[in-house]
């Protein structure tokens, strides 16, 4: 996926969010650190362009909710959760870069529930690479990329000093 394809996919997702929620007056975006935060910011801008409305935006760190916290090696770096609005009664769109096992999303939903009672939680991801280990499905998908388990998907973003693109890597890095 190159930068044009990425922009088109995000633009389509922005339209789909507006269509499904009949506008965005009761919608809030929450990006999952780190990649999801930048994608959520881009969706916010796209929605503002289309609908001329600013939706609220938050950032969620799921480290403390991971289900492998007590068994994995090394210390995951803690970052701050920053959700500067009340979740209750809003339709929250969780945004992440890659949907894989579904465990991150499970952790993110638990994290959100501790912060309030959203009216609904929806999920938007740039890439769905399959291999779910939990019954979780995205409402908005930029692109489905079938992968083997030992392959890895990396999303490079301008905000992180790279050219926008998605690459399939083999045996590189730890799974997302």
């Amino acid at each position: 996926m190159d930068s044009h394809e990425m922009t088109r996919a995000l633009t389509r997702i922005a339209h789909e969010i507006l269509e499904r929620n009949k506008g965005c007056h009761d919608v809030g975006l929450v990006g999952i650190r780190t990649g999801g935060v930048y994608l959520a910011q881009r969706l916010k801008h796209l929605i503002a362009q289309i609908e001329h409305t600013e939706v609220v935006l938050g950032e969620l760190d799921i480290t403390l909710y991971r289900d492998d916290l007590s068994i994995r090696k090394g210390q995951p770096v803690l970052k701050k959760t920053d959700i500067p609005f009340h979740l209750s009664d809003l339709k929250i769109i969780l945004v992440d870069d890659v949907l894989f096992t579904g465990r991150t999303i499970r952790a993110a939903m638990d994290g959100l529930m501790d912060l309030g009672r959203p009216a609904e939680i929806q999920l938007a991801v740039l890439i769905d690479r399959g291999h779910r280990q939990l019954p979780i499905r995205a409402n908005y998908v930029g692109k489905n990329i079938p992968t083997a388990k030992e392959e890895n998907i990396r999303v490079f973003l301008e905000e992180l000093g790279e050219e926008d693109r998605v690459a399939k890597l083999i045996n590189a890095g730890s799974p997302a």
Binding site: Y65, D110, D114
Partner: peptide
């Protein structure tokens, strides 16, 4: 937070 608890 209102619910001052995380499962870490």
């Amino acid at each position: 937070r209102e619910i001052k608890k995380v499962p870490a």
